[in-house]
């Protein structure tokens, strides 16, 4: 009878836990936003696979000297183009360098270029996108027209031009990738802000007298960044591919540096004969990109509060 007595009290039913009648189901009393996002991310099998791949990549890059079995630069002209064996797991290249060690060391370039270029791109893109989205009008027009120019330029051609001017090396690669990636980030953030800005909760904050910075930091950013976050994860993967492509085309890092694009490039002459030469670095690239794509997908789903 307690159930009945309770429901007869005025207003008691409306104050009943949502779990009993409402939309929300077993909700723990105390959950943080991050805790919930982590939970949702971890519940997604592909996202976890992606995360493992990405962590493996980072670990490999950090511990490359410990994992590598040989010096990636050491040439052994007496043992060139050797097939995979107990000593050289992935075989050796035309200069007798250990392929396994080069693949391992190649992760360092991938990580550094991928993260640094996207970090830079975000720095430019997020600030400009936020300015354009929040202030609109002339600021928006000017920023977006500039973004259009970079957006319209094919990444590889633009990067080649910059590298030809600056010379080859890791820095020019990072810079050129950043310069041609920020436009997408800023566009995404801008459009996301534009839609969030119209939400009633932003109006409500204004009506309460909240300052502009408070509105941006507390209300607009947390809700618009989600759309950008997953894209950023994708972009790291894309940047790594772009970097490898530049090296493959011979405008990336110097050819002696252990780098996946370089390795594939030098394997060109032996395609169909010594396929292990291009296979291992290619697999490394594919796994890396898949890792970031899965993480990006997982983030998108985990960050959406409405999907629950």
């Amino acid at each position: 009878m307690t159930e009945l007595a309770k429901s007869q009290g005025p207003g008691a039913a409306t104050a009943e836990p949502a779990a009993a009648t409402g939309t929300a189901e077993p909700a723990p009393a105390r959950i943080t936003q991050w805790g919930e996002i982590r939970h949702r991310f971890m519940a997604n099998r592909l996202a976890v696979v992606g995360l493992v791949l990405v962590l493996l990549l980072f670990l490999t890059a950090a511990l490359a000297p410990l994992i590598a079995t040989h010096d990636p630069y050491a040439q052994d002209l007496g043992n060139t183009l050797a097939s995979p064996s107990g000593d050289h797991w992935f075989g050796t290249d035309a200069l007798g360098r250990d392929q396994f060690s080069r693949v391992i060391y190649g992760s360092r370039i991938a990580v550094v270029v991928g993260l640094a270029s996207i970090f830079l791109a975000c720095l430019i893109g997020l600030v400009l996108g936020a300015l354009a989205g929040y202030f609109g009008k002339t600021v928006d027009t000017v920023i977006m027209r500039i973004a259009d120019i970079f957006f319209a330029f094919p990444l590889l051609i633009g990067a080649i031009v910059i590298i030809l001017v600056m010379g080859r090396g890791v820095m020019p690669v990072i810079l050129s990738l950043a310069i041609f990636s920020w436009a997408t980030v800023s566009r995404l953030l801008r459009s996301s802000i534009l839609s969030v800005r119209e939400m009633d909760y932003v109006t409500a904050a204004k009506a309460l007298g909240a300052s502009t910075s408070r509105i941006i930091i507390r209300h607009i950013m947390p809700n618009s960044i989600a759309a950008v976050m997953s894209f950023i994860a994708f972009s790291v993967g894309t940047a790594i591919v772009a970097e490898a492509s530049l090296s493959y085309l011979g405008v990336g890092v110097s050819p002696e540096v252990p780098e996946w694009g370089n390795m594939i490039s030098s394997a060109r002459d032996f395609m169909g004969v010594k396929d292990f030469l291009w296979m291992y670095p290619s697999v490394a690239i594919v796994l890396t990109v898949l890792g970031f794509v899965f993480v990006g997908d997982g983030l998108r789903d985990a960050l959406d509060p409405k999907l629950r």
């Binding site: 008691a12 039913a13 409306t14 009943e16 009648t21 189901e25």
Partner: peptide
């Protein structure tokens, strides 16, 4: 009183 039912957990 109360709320419309949750279709996942109909009373």
């Amino acid at each position: 009183k109360g709320l419309p039912p949750n279709l996942l957990h109909i009373p």
